[in-house]
Simulated scan of single mutants.
Amino acid sequence: MESTPASHRLHSGYNHQVARSWQEIGATLQANNLMYPLFIVDDPDAVQPVASMPGVSRYGVNQLEQVLPPLVQDGLTSVLLFGVPEGQKDERGSGADVPDNAVIKAIRTIKSCCPSLLIACDVCLCPYTSHGHCGILHEDGTINNPPSIARLAEVALAYAQAGADVVAPSDMMDWSCGGHQIPAGRRRPRRSLRRPLVRRASSPAASTGPFRDAAKSAPAFGDRRCYQLPPGGRGLAARAAAR
């Protein structure tokens, strides 16, 4: 019988020691199950306390070499990076993947100072768009799916090429969770032999006031309920994952 080429590869699921631990059977509450969120701002020397989240601060890239090593010594194994841009924003979130993007700089800094850490990057346009929504909009304010998919794939590719181990599409739209954004990103020309693991970030945390305060990602108008999967919609999630 003629063999059929594999339609996908599993290597991204175990190329990192922490990723391999995630594949083990069963669920436990240990350090390797927890991801530390890092909110990265443009000012490289900044430390900005988040009023709504006591003990949490936004950091500039230069602060990471002091902040992270003690946490790694205490057992931290992975971080999740969120960009908090303070510069110019536009309708397509152009700042999300420019070479001097703070998240891209942070990936390289963390790889240098804490090489054992698994690095995940939030993939969403809302912090970088002038309207604060997760994709590119039609004139009437609704989501324009095709260019949004292409744009988010570009951002995911930029993070992967910078060295991210995981790309996490937190936009949580039906077309993203249904797998359309992920293949779009993987069809992009690959200049690296290593493929990042794709983990779908959940939306409940991102929908809370304190988190939006930390990430400065509240929409300028309307809300995201019209295009994000409901957090408790397990049936919708299962249908999306099966598409």
Rank of each mutant, 00 (worst) to 15 (best):
G26V: 02
S12Y: 06
R151E: 01
D140P: 11
L71E: 12
G55P: 08
R234I: 06
W22D: 00
R225G: 12
C121V: 09
P196F: 13
G83Y: 06
V98L: 09
V61F: 09
L29T: 02
A205R: 15
W22I: 02
D174K: 12
G13F: 14
R92S: 05
G87S: 14
L81W: 11
P127V: 00
V79P: 06
S202D: 08
G95Y: 07
N62Y: 14
A164Y: 15
A205D: 04
P85G: 01
Q66C: 03
T208I: 05
L229H: 13
T208R: 08
P231L: 00
R200M: 12
G95F: 01
T208P: 07
A164I: 02
D42L: 03
L152T: 01
G87L: 09
P231D: 12
A184P: 09
G132M: 05
C134V: 09
D122V: 04
L229S: 03
I25Q: 14
T109K: 15
V79Q: 06
R92D: 03
K105P: 05
Q63M: 12
N33V: 05
E139M: 04
A168K: 06
E2T: 07
R58V: 00
I143R: 03
G135T: 03
N101D: 09
A162N: 05
S52I: 04
Y227T: 01
R151V: 00
S12I: 05
D90T: 04
D140A: 07
V123L: 05
I110D: 02
L71G: 09
A215Y: 09
S176T: 13
V47F: 10
G209M: 06
R200T: 01
A205T: 06
G163N: 14
N62C: 11
T208L: 07
P204R: 13
L193C: 07
L137M: 15
G87N: 13
H8V: 04
V61H: 03
L29V: 02
A218V: 08
Y159T: 02
C121P: 01
G135K: 04
F211K: 02
A162P: 01
A46F: 13
V166A: 10
L76W: 11
L64D: 03
R58L: 01
D174Q: 13
L118M: 14
A106Y: 08
R224S: 04
A160S: 15
C177W: 13
D42S: 15
R191N: 14
A162Y: 06
H133S: 00
L118K: 09
S94C: 05
L71H: 09
L137R: 09
I149S: 03
P146C: 08
D174S: 11
D42W: 14
D45F: 09
R243I: 00
E2C: 03
V47K: 05
G75F: 15
F211P: 00
R225A: 08
T28A: 12
S57H: 14
G135Y: 05
G26I: 04
R225M: 10
L76K: 12
A19Y: 07
A206S: 07
N101C: 15
V166E: 08
W22S: 00
R58T: 01
A96T: 00
K111Y: 08
A106I: 07
P189G: 06
Q73Y: 04
A184E: 14
R187C: 08
H180W: 11
H133C: 03
C126N: 11
R188Q: 15
L117F: 13
D165Y: 08
